[in-house]
Nucleic acid binder design. Structure first.
Lengths: 344, 344
DNA sequence: TTTAAGTACTGCAACGTTGTAAGGTGCAGA
DNA sequence: TCTGCACCTTACAACGTTGCAGTACTTAAA
């Protein structure tokens, strides 16, 4: 049984409340008393009980982060960055893996979290009532909640135009939604379509491949299906995540196709693995560190309780950049940029 | 302000305690009363306050998982599996990123976690007193704490012997510790040395490369340093993690070396990315799902409070298997095993 | 000398829950 | 009618903390 205020008070010969005052840095405590109390605290190794504190009315110092899954490198990286961004504020992050199930989020309310950062991909559940929340990702919203995202359509357009500029005309897209609520993927698809339309190109429906998930295996399978099914092979593929792209590349190489000679491949996410694969992966890299920092900052504002906590919800758009590597440019030019920028 | 027991009691016209009894499924409640109370609960949307419950004496339903970092695919995967294993028990997992800093773990006690699963790599701090804990990884211990791990030395031996069987004689190791407390890496190094010694081979100190971290960039840099420094090139490399291996392979290909023709490479961890890289990565795959399940089960036993909670700490050794792919076997034989076993 | 203001500290109540013990019914049997 | 006994329900205390009100003492001003 750890020591309590009561024990410290008994040892120092003061009331419980005086110890509480010392612990909380209250001003009106005589130096001598403070010293004696502090000595008792140190001697007993007293640590305040967070449960009781929170019951009395303070925050718990824990925020929740809900991501679809940690095995996706992008979300793992995002989670790591958010933990780091929350650290200076003394917050601990409780990570919840939704696996696309909305009830996982609702369950969070049962724990004493002060706020929530939610990457709602695949979850169409409402945002929990009464819990300060920041949304991540390109979800179209009613504007009820703070929101940080890249412009998915614009970024997808950049990727597509990069392929067009390289002289590719028959461009496939891997990662289209196979169910309605996948808004991120719908946005990326829209950006893809628009960029092609702007170049006067029609989208061949055969070349738009829906996938059940966004993993390496899904990318590999989608590419295999594409190559098996289509009469005229595409000369480029825009994959909606880097994992899909790495899987797709594997399938191409497997079948003796040259990347990017026969097929250029570009991904989306900017994960570290793409810089070290062979061929290294061209991608759209969102400013993930900034997304993490902004999400934490927005949540802090809401939790602060000051005047800003009542402000209308904000939509913040974060920048992205095109990182062209070997999977679209070929090995010569890419080699000249070796080694890739460290992400440490 | 969410509804409290008090509010429900008032609405149902019973005492607070009766509502509490209904909520907790206490037997002696008249069916009619139960019905009325339940109706009030539903009408008000009452949810028990976990803070007060815990203050009164129960567990919080939250366990902590401390990993060095989430950006490493292996730890991200492990974290995801532990979250899944904890779910059936109704536990939520609070993930702490230690970044090699022991004070992060100590800070956990301030939050109301029931137990801790700790991957202490790079952290030489003591296990927190009084918090039920399960250790992961090949840490050598005084046997005070439950512990789940693969036999790192044996596994490293398997990797090394695999290279020897392929006729490689000049084998390097990337990932040796650059600081004392890195026990995992020390064990793997020992396994490597022993396997070579068993084959009557001496270890060339030049071929044992210490690294500052276990990332892709560290592997790439280590391999570059090795190739630059050593007169006679090694014909195989055992990397202590898959990330190191993927980075090392990238450097080899970058320099025009064939993998495995010129240099065979094998990793350690069995991460999914290794199955889709080119060449695909041979590796030692620990049974990570089992590690996660066992860690949760052991913790549950300690928390159960039953007779088993007082048992002496257990050391559990988890199996591993050698997954031979293209980076050691070459592309022909590997292609025959395509596609790799899904890890979903 | 009295009053006011300020300082140092204490005691009580409250946060929302649950365990314990006690209170209050109604019914069967004496 | 009364006792005993289930059965159902309630009051109270406690978990560890902090806000508030209040007390006792000190110092300075009127």
């Amino acid at each position: 049984m750890p020591p309590r205020l009561k024990d410290v008070a008994a040892r120092a010969g003061v009331s419980i409340k005086t110890v509480s005052n010392v612990v909380n840095g209250f001003v009106h405590v005589a130096p001598e008393t403070r010293r004696r109390v502090q000595a008792a605290i140190d001697a007993l190794g007293y640590v305040p009980d967070p449960t009781a504190r929170r019951l009395r009315g303070g925050g718990s110092g824990v925020i929740a982060l809900a991501v679809p899954e940690l095995r996706s490198p992008y979300y793992a990286e995002l989670a790591g960055l958010i933990v780091q961004a929350a650290e200076p504020r003394g917050w601990t992050v409780l990570i919840e893996q939704t696996d696309g199930r909305g009830d996982r989020i609702t369950g969070l309310r049962r724990h004493s979290v002060d706020g929530l950062i939610l990457a709602p991909q695949g979850v169409d559940r409402e945002v929990p009532d009464g819990l300060p929340t920041v949304l991540l990702g390109e979800r179209v919203l009613d504007g009820q909640t703070d929101h940080v995202a890249v412009d998915g359509a614009a970024a997808a357009g950049d990727a597509t135009r990069h392929l067009l500029r390289l002289g590719r005309w028959r461009i496939a897209a891997i990662g289209a939604p196979d169910r309605p609520p996948a808004i991120i993927r719908t946005q990326r698809l829209a950006g893809f379509r628009n960029a092609l339309a702007d170049s006067g190109l029609a989208v061949d429906p055969q070349l738009v491949v829906p996938v059940p998930g966004m993993h390496l295996a899904d990318g590999a399978a989608a590419m295999a299906g594409l190559l098996d099914r289509v009469e005229r092979r595409p000369d480029a593929v825009f994959c909606f995540t880097d994992s899909l792209a790495l899987g797709a590349i594997r399938t191409c190489l497997e079948r003796g196709l040259d990347v990017p000679g026969d097929i250029a491949v570009i991904g989306f996410d900017g994960i570290e693995e793409g810089a070290y694969s062979t061929p290294s992966l061209s991608t759209i890299a969102p400013d993930t560190a900034r997304i993490a920092q902004l999400a934490v900052d927005l949540l802090a504002e809401r939790l602060g309780g000051g005047p800003s906590a009542a402000k209308p919800p904000r939509e913040i758009c974060v920048g992205h950049r095109l990182v062209a590597r070997e999977s679209t440019l070929g090995s010569t030019s890419a080699r000249s940029r070796w080694p890739p920028r460290s992400r440490a």
